[in-house]
Each structure stands twice: as C-alpha cells, then as structure tokens.
C-alpha cells in the first residue's frame, strides 16, 4: 500500500469511445500492491502548467505491474494526456488512497457493483478481485448512450452478471442504473462509483434497506497525499464508531480526506 513516485512509459493508448481513452502505463513494483478502488495521480505535461496532478482510478493491474486507466478527455490536463502516444513517459504518484473492502470470505449472496459513466473503471479491478475469490458479482452500469458504453468486455471476461442501462435507451435498459439495482433480488453488498447524484441515490437505496454499501467519492485534489486538506468530504460521526483522531468537524460530523481515508467510504457515513 505504499505509494511511489515514478516515471514510466506509455505502452499503449487507444481511444475507446468518443473522448474516452484507455491508457496502459509501464510496470512498477508499487503497482503490484494496489487494491481495487485506489487511484494514481498523473503529472500531465512536462511543465509546471498545468500545475496539479490529475487523479485517476486504477482500472486494472497486470501481473508485471503494468496498469491501465480509462479516462474522459474533458479539460486542459486530460486533453494533454490524450495527445500522448506510446513511448512518451508519464510521471505517476501512486497507488493512493483507501480502496474497496472485499468480503472476508466467498459468499453466494448477491454482490452488486453499480457504475455510472466514467466512474466504471475502478469496478473492473474490483470485479476481477471478486472473481479471483470465486465470487460472480452482479454488475449494473449506466451510460448516457450506446456510444459511451465502456468496459463491457472486461466484466464479461471475469464472468460477471452484467446489465447496462442508457439514458436514451440506445443500448440495454432504457432508464437509470438505479432502476437496474432495484431489480436485483436481495443484494447483500453494494459497491458504487459514479457521479455524485448516482452515489447519493445508491446510498439512499442501501441505507433505507440496511444493505452494506461502499461508495467511491470524487473531489478536486492537490497533493493526493493527505497534506493539503483540499479534498475533504463531510461524514457522519456515528456512535460507537470513533472519530478519526486527526479529524475535525462539528456536532455529529467530521471532515475526512477523499485522498487518504477515501476515496471509498461506507455509504452510511457520507453526508451527501
């Protein structure tokens, strides 16, 4: 779980959907310690402008420590990243953060992974780890339309029960991913990553039914190492859970750092 700063070559970069890229970065031993839900901070571009690293979830890690991230080119930094070709090098800080907590033992109770759009990639790593434990998760994904659907092949490869929803019905179920979640019979554990609104809906679904649920949060980050306090998220302090020793907050709530205590939090804990 110890992070490293390293420079590594791009082994491959492919455009897999409109504005969405699959980036394979060269191996580093630190990446072999990565767990699902953890992320890396990439220094995009060789200069101090853009200044800050960009956080991306680890999509999967190969046996040699090479790893992939899937990202949407949307602003200054990701546009620069999208222009890089195989052979160019990228500086990486990672693996970072606290990822998903896996079940203690194989279980036959339904485990559901809920992904929304570009929040899907870390669920690939998670599905692979569950599959290695002998668990076949239910994976429900939501996208705006058929052109935006990503990662389908990875989930099929690890034997997941897969269902996909699109906002416009151009692929799979016509509607919201949370509607797919409601169709699953008695989920025992839910993992979710996606836009904040989706996470709030999934958390509400799980909390009202007392289903154990973990959500991966997103905030703008500077350091990614827990020092700048730029990435904090409001969480409940519920007895008997003790407050984080270094955390501060108000009555009944405390800040936690998305880059350190997160990005994955217990859904019952997050104040949306």
């Amino acid at each position: 779980m110890t992070a490293a700063e390293f420079t590594t070559p791009i082994l491959k970069q492919t455009r897999i959907a409109e504005d969405i890229y699959n980036l394979t970065l060269g191996p580093h031993p630190a990446m072999l310690t990565a767990t699902p839900g953890q992320f890396v901070q990439l220094a995009v571009g060789p200069t101090w402008d853009p200044l800050l690293r960009r956080p991306f979830s680890i999509c999967y890690v190969k046996d040699d420590g090479a790893f992939n991230i899937l990202y949407r080119a949307q602003g200054k930094g990701t546009a620069l990243l999208a222009h890089l070709c195989a052979g160019a090098s990228v500086n990486v800080l990672g693996p970072l953060g606290h990822g998903f907590t896996l079940p203690q033992a194989p279980t036959s109770d339904p485990i559901v992974l809920v992904g929304g759009g570009i929040g899907t990639p870390p669920l690939v790593f998670l599905a692979q780890s569950l599959s290695n434990m002998g668990i076949r998760p239910h994976v429900t994904l939501g996208f705006t339309n058929a052109d935006q659907v990503i990662c389908e092949e990875y989930f099929r490869a690890c034997g997941a029960h897969l269902s996909i929803a699109t906002d416009d019905g151009s692929y799979g179920y016509h509607g919201l991913v949370t509607e797919l979640l409601e169709q699953i019979n008695k989920p025992a554990l839910i993992y979710a990553c996606g836009p904040r609104g989706m996470l709030a809906a999934v958390a509400h679904f799980a909390n009202t039914r007392r289903i154990s649920c973990q959500v991966s949060m997103e905030e703008h980050m500077a350091c990614g190492m827990g020092v700048c306090l730029g990435c904090v998220c409001k969480t409940k302090v519920t007895a008997p859970a003790a407050p984080q020793p270094n955390a501060v907050g108000g009555p009944g709530w405390q800040w936690q750092r998305v880059c350190m205590e997160g990005p994955v939090f217990d859904a019952a804990e997050v104040i949306f």
Partner: peptide, 13 residues
Amino acid sequence: TGNPMPRIVETPA
C-alpha cells in the same frame, strides 16, 4: 474546521 468545499482550484501555473 476550516472552510466549506470546494477549497482548491487550479490557475495558470
């Protein structure tokens, strides 16, 4: 407790 979020924004360099 510090300020509410968002707390940081990137600017040129």
